[in-house]
């Protein structure tokens, strides 16, 4: 069986994936994880999880490229730049119109 090991470095911090190990059962997995990820006092706590118990999700279709749904958000940078340029050229035109 393969077990995934998650390690918490300090109290209160999130557990992060440390690595995986192969073990015949949970008892061996715990003993081996303890020696591999805890013996140098580098961990506050470990989670030792059978890989089969993890429901892996990795398909996230976005066929229509709905960028406004994405975590990096709706990109305003390019649009702002354009708007600024438009504003500047409009300002320049109106300034010219003020000339005698």
């Amino acid at each position: 069986m393969v077990f995934e090991v998650f390690r918490q470095e300090r109290k209160g911090q999130p557990f992060q994936h440390a690595g995986a190990l192969a073990a015949p059962n949970a008892e061996f997995a715990e003993a081996w994880a303890r020696e591999q990820y805890g013996r140098r006092q580098e961990s506050e706590a470990l989670w030792v999880v059978p890989r089969d118990e993890i429901r892996a999700v990795h398909d996230f279709p976005d066929e229509l490229h709905k960028t406004y749904h994405r975590v990096d958000g709706y990109s305003l940078k390019a649009k702002l730049k354009e708007a600024r340029q438009r504003a500047e050229s409009a300002g320049a035109l109106s300034a010219r119109a003020d000339l005698p």
């Binding site: 190990l21 192969a22 073990a23 003993a31 081996w32 020696e35 591999q36 013996r39």
Partner: peptide, 12 residues
């Protein structure tokens, strides 16, 4: 016998 045991037994 296995990499995992190698690390554990060396640590012991």
């Amino acid at each position: 016998p296995s990499l995992e045991e190698d690390v554990a037994f060396s640590s012991i």
